[in-house]
Design a protein around this nucleic acid. Structure first.
Lengths: 212, 212, 212, 212
DNA sequence: AATGAATGAGCCTTCATTCAT
DNA sequence: GATGAATGAAGGCTCATTCAT
């Protein structure tokens, strides 16, 4: 259908531009120009700019999950599952194409939430969070109480996102780090090793702070 | 002095508003209105909106460092230094008053750099990064090679910032976590414990694989 | 067509106002108000104020040439051609309607050039200058060398424009001179007579000294 | 006196800047900056920007007349007087230093009169015009009636100003013409020769237009 | 189903002027 | 006698949105 053509092109153009410039800085005109559509087509197909953005977010999330499945399945060994999760997390943020918008869009959305965030949490973020905690619990064993699992999950997620979120700074301070496939693999290896070591010893550490 | 009056009020108003809405979304008019100053006073005192922003950034950084010094000094035990660094890092981002802008401003600036980032990196971020790596090396001992120190430093920094950067999501997913003083202390304790465990074992882990 | 409506009204309003007040002093708001259009319509139709001005200039030039063709053709006697040229020159600057902007706009542009001048020289002024020199050469005969033709051409052009350029002063000093059709015809007659006499005798005059 | 210092510097700075950029485009701030004076000093010394401008005009006129006296005196031969007048006229517009502002300022004022023009006509322009007509009458002899003298005077004045008024165009179309001392002398020679030839023959020409 | 034209609110910036000292 | 600070009125431009077709 001709409609689908325009709609689809609009979605794609909006994803590229908004993920690069942010919601505000991206203009409807630029999006329409790139999609080779009329300025009025955003209103026509999506009602307004914000609704277009919300559809972009959803589409990006779905494609990113499809491109980088976060879980090989509960029948795999715990470390392998965690490794897969970490890799999926990292590549979801750094990939090319539509899947990569998701990282950028999420980062924005988390920092500067719009009404779209609640829906996003429900459909995308909470399931991931639950999955991560499940894996951490598996890896950590029975000595890790719920609170510890929660915090350790946060630490893993933190590491997976930091490289992307701070990329402009990282590029300046650590030029030896690369953002290509090999660099990201090295990063994933580090995060896995760091986190496994941490969790393995965590139960023995005095979480109250080591104050003498 | 009259000069201090308007200039100072402008700086304060700009910090509050820009940190909340971002550079673009914050309007000179709103800033001036809140500072009870004329629209033209931004030009008079700072030249333009961007220069005002740069001064805000500098002032926020300096005040945040003054409020939360990151290093008790090299004569303290390594773990204590790292603990102080982590606490300073966390509180710097979550602080009240002018210092609190810092977190938001930095986060924005890192994700969506303006021309101000280079100066910020030079004066604020790189020194912190160097200090952190020094501490990690102290804690990790001679078995940690340079690459490992670099990556472990990233992991620590990641955890310190994540709680703030993802606060809107954390609030929704983990309502049991609090952002008050006590909650932040608990977080700092966790990050220290997690990171110390990780570094202590890191040298033994097979970084390329993660399985012993 | 609706398009022609606003665009055309904008062009007309801009011509009137800019020719009267100058490019800087003329405001987009005033132009739009007179054209009964929105402030944003200048951007929509012309991109910005300057481009609008350039189109005004072109349109004024073209209409002025159409209203007052400068050359009856090379098959007419030399004096007749020169007379036609002078009349056309004068009336082009003093004309009514859109053509009348041309004088003002040209005068401004010559004195205080914008980027539009180069294009104007290429399309409007140089062809006129070439035509004038051709006529002067015809009238002056073979005794007039190139340098003399050039200077005599300048003198003719000077006279044609002076009455307009100095009109505010002329009105004050010589109230007997009129700017109506009859007054301009008298002026044209004078310029032709003055210039023909000058050129006829020029070859014999000692240009370096002026005393026979 | 210190006041005179500032006042004088203000006058000089305003002359330079306004003659170059025009009254509107010249800003009080730039003038004060160049004069190393406070922004408020214009109000203090002259009341407002326009009054400053009027004083600049007067001062420039007086200096220009002093630098380039237009008349060697009635006891000199007619052609010599006219030659001196033409040279003075031309150099007044093209000179360097304060005298040169006058040309620019006059040209502006004539095209876009302010309230200062009436005073300027009374004190500067009309006396010059009268003088020129006297010279033309001397040169033309008794056959030239008043009307002819008037028009011929206009033609001489037109030529003297045209080279300056159209300089931006002349530079583009006739790059062989120079604006240095020698070029201006050549121009003066031409104008004198052209005008003398014209006037000498003018009485014989059919001023009504040469229509057969 | 889709569009080119038009809108109005609002943005940053600029400037001559004035105020308080 | 002189100034740095402050003001208010614009100015050009931008953008999401809407209208008429």
């Amino acid at each position: 259908m001709t409609q689908d053509g325009t709609r689809e092109r609009l979605l794609r153009a909006a994803g590229e531009i908004i993920s690069r410039k942010g919601f505000r800085a991206a203009t409807v005109r630029e999006i329409c120009a790139r999609a080779k559509a009329n300025v009025a087509s955003v209103k026509y197909h999506f009602g307004n700019k914000r609704s277009l953005y919300e559809e972009v977010l959803q589409a990006a999330f779905e494609e990113s999950i499809r491109d980088h499945p976060p879980d090989p399945g509960p029948d795999h060994p715990p470390e392998e599952r965690l490794r897969a999760f970490i890799r999926s997390f990292i590549f979801r943020f750094h990939g090319e194409g539509r899947g990569s918008w998701f990282g950028r869009l999420m980062t924005r959305e988390m920092f500067e939430p719009t009404e779209a965030l609640d829906e996003l949490v429900r459909r995308a973020i909470r399931p991931m969070s639950d999955l991560l905690q499940e894996m951490v619990r598996e890896v950590g064993g029975p000595d890790l109480d719920d609170r510890a699992v929660l915090f350790c999950g946060l630490s893993v997620a933190a590491q997976c996102q930091h490289f992307f979120r701070s990329r402009e700074v990282v590029r300046r301070i650590h030029p030896s780090l690369r953002f290509d496939r090999q660099g990201l693999e090295e990063l994933a290896d580090h995060i896995l090793a760091f986190s496994l070591s941490a969790v393995a010893n965590y139960r023995r550490a005095d979480r109250a702070g080591g104050r003498p």
